[in-house]
Amino acid sequence: MKVWHVAAPALAGLLLGTALTFAPAASQADQDTATIVHERQQLMKDFGSAMKTIGGYLQGGMGTTEDVAAAAGVIADGAATLPDHFPAGTSMDDVMDPKTGAKPVIWEQWDEFVADAQTLQARATTVQELAMAMDDAALGDAFQALGNDGCGGCHKTFREKLE
């Protein structure tokens, strides 16, 4: 007991020293998390543009099936790397600047999150293949599946819509 009392101030000093030593590193980490959030938000924006391209083709005959295939390819390729963009410590509770809508539940249900990314990749690949085969008739349903199972499946649980 006595030993502990004597040791306590030393321990506190050690902890303080540690904190001081690592303070500059923490701000470096902040920059890193900011970069991570920026990059994944850009990835999502790219997905959104790709969805618009596919939707524009289906809705108004804008563009060609090659455009649709390329857009679906952007989503499929991005989906393959998607979990890498979500390292631990980058949830909406961890990173304030920039704001992120990544719910902490992502890391509580990581396997499901990864499975959702794989579903996204699979659905996007289906759209890509149908577009390359110029199968317009099947493309509408595949697009619906991409939006619902791919994007929406993950958004339902893991994403907070920011204003």
Binding site: G48, S49, G55, Q144, G147, N148
Partner: peptide, 13 residues
């Protein structure tokens, strides 16, 4: 049908 909004974003929650 697909959950997609005009800006290409897909609905959440």
């Amino acid at each position: 049908k697909a959950g997609m909004m005009p800006d290409g974003d897909v609905v959440s929650g």
